[in-house]
Design a protein around this nucleic acid. Sequence first.
DNA 1: ACTTGCCAATTGCATATGCAATTGGATAGC
DNA 2: GCTATCCAATTGCATATGCAATTGGCAAGT
Lengths: 249, 249
Amino acid sequence: MTETRLDAVKLDGAGPVYDQIRRAIRDLVVSGEWQPGTSVPPEHALMEQLGASRMTVHRALVQLAREGLITRRRRSGTVVATPPASHAMLDILSIPEEVRQLGQAYAYEVLARTDGRPSPEVAELFGLKRSDKVAHLIVLHRADGKPHVLEERVIHAAGVTGLADENFAETPPGDWLLQHSLWSQAEHAISAIGAGEEQAALLDIAVGEPCLLVERRTWNQSHPVTAVRLLYPGFRHRFVGRFGPYGAA
Amino acid sequence: MTETRLDAVKLDGAGPVYDQIRRAIRDLVVSGEWQPGTSVPPEHALMEQLGASRMTVHRALVQLAREGLITRRRRSGTVVATPPASHAMLDILSIPEEVRQLGQAYAYEVLARTDGRPSPEVAELFGLKRSDKVAHLIVLHRADGKPHVLEERVIHAAGVTGLADENFAETPPGDWLLQHSLWSQAEHAISAIGAGEEQAALLDIAVGEPCLLVERRTWNQSHPVTAVRLLYPGFRHRFVGRFGPYGAA
DNA sequence: ACTTGCCAATTGCATATGCAATTGGATAGC
DNA sequence: GCTATCCAATTGCATATGCAATTGGCAAGT
């Protein structure tokens, strides 16, 4: 268990004390300075370090715990939480999970991989320099043997360690990246598009068949990590969410 | 401003006191017993009624305020909030707003309206009895004069007051419903589909052109309110969301 | 070794208290 | 009437204090 530096917690004098404390610790967590798994100083230590009462420190920590950034247990103390993986529909989805939750058998094939410079379009789409190194992958995911979704992915080599040595034989790139990279920002877009010739052939559908296109771009500290286009045959796919006026059900 | 009954707040003895208070009030709000706009008793009153200290009551109220169920202001007191209308992409969207946020001029036409019994398909889709009364509407929304989205909507007359007298000349049905009905549950599905003949003609696109189909069904206390199918031409539409591992950005 | 029991560290919760900030409404003055 | 002023109701915040609950790890005993 890595150590956290107590003196890294600093107040900025803006607003209520409990909120200053909350923000200070949140920033340390979100910036990655306090890694998941490291232990947060106990309330007494923070109390002395910051010159606040224990209840005030407590209030900040309780709130952070409710927000899911830290987890707390009596006696063992407080530790930085590992970020939650998934958030209903908008989320970073794991395709294997998605398929298995439908009760179907999952399989995938890496159809192509090229390592090198990004093409102009890719560089544009992704905000990369032509000189950056990227891996370009095309993966077909199957559910019960039938084509389920076509994945086209670009990975920025500089943002991920071990990319060159990974051949994605065991784990599809999306899941592999979840374990080997960090992300702090993502953008997610859904649109409808007709299948192109190659795409239709791979997905075993007719050319022009309506498909759902999910495009996702991911950054770590404004540093591109990966961009992916997922093409789902429309007629066999819907994204469903259920919720109430006061939040997801 | 309607009054709230103080003695409606009852603790159930389960778990921490502050949480009992929070749940008690939350239930009164969510169940509709305390309507939006009504004022919540001040901390002192709750404190006496419940035999808890002010700080404990305070804690419950602060948390409810953070969750958005109530709003609090010094001196004026605490009132039940009107439920928030929108939540990023998954939300109950107002199409006029959506269009205006794109900086385009909004207009709409009600193309058809029939009041009567639901067709078998509609009844099926919506979980209605054949004997229920419904209104069936077809509305075309335009942005800068061009067709933007085709709306097909079924409204359950029993769930909405004033439906028969409304002709939707001033306000499109989606927005009108937001003001004249309550909902406690919604389901939202996104898929891709090719435009049918009539749809294509209305949207001024080619038959078979890929479209985003958003289907939403809404209930109030497990009681159907409305169901809607929104058909967006795919090539001029994408739903975008931005977020981080700790929530929306 | 292995088990049992105990202690102390740590968080969870509630209370009592005091003061600050905001502001609706009453009151006084014009 | 109209305005300026003040007061009191209400929430916001911080502290000090005490006890409860949990449990990691040590110590003692077998």
